[in-house]
C-alpha cells in the first residue's frame, strides 16, 4: 500500500464519517444535528454569516481566481 493510497483512503474515510453523521442526524431523537442545522445555528449571528460566506468566497477564489 503506497503513501498516496493511504492518503486517498483517509480522505474517503472523512467523507464516510460525514455521511454517517448526516444519516444519524436524520434519526428521531438523535443527539447529532444535521450539517444544515449546524450552519443554520452558526448563521444566526452576523459574524457567523460573514465568516461562513467569506469561507465560501475564498473557496471560489482558491479554485478559480488569481
Amino acid at each position: 500500500m503506497t503513501s498516496r493510497y493511504v492518503t486517498l483512503v483517509l480522505y474517503g474515510m472523512f467523507a464516510l464519517v460525514a455521511l454517517a453523521l448526516e444519516v444519524r442526524s436524520r434519526r428521531s431523537r438523535s443527539s447529532i444535528p444535521s450539517l444544515s442545522t449546524v450552519f443554520t445555528r452558526i448563521m444566526r449571528t452576523r459574524s457567523g454569516r460573514v465568516g461562513v460566506m467569506a469561507g465560501w468566497v475564498w473557496l471560489g477564489l482558491h479554485f478559480f481566481a488569481r
Binding site: M53, W56, V57, L61, F64, A65
Partner: peptide, 15 residues
C-alpha cells in the same frame, strides 16, 4: 477572478 469576485461580493453584502 472577476467572475468569482462579483457573486462573492454580493453574497458577502447579503450576509
Amino acid at each position: 477572478t472577476i467572475a468569482v469576485l462579483v457573486p462573492g461580493a454580493f453574497a458577502l453584502w447579503f450576509a
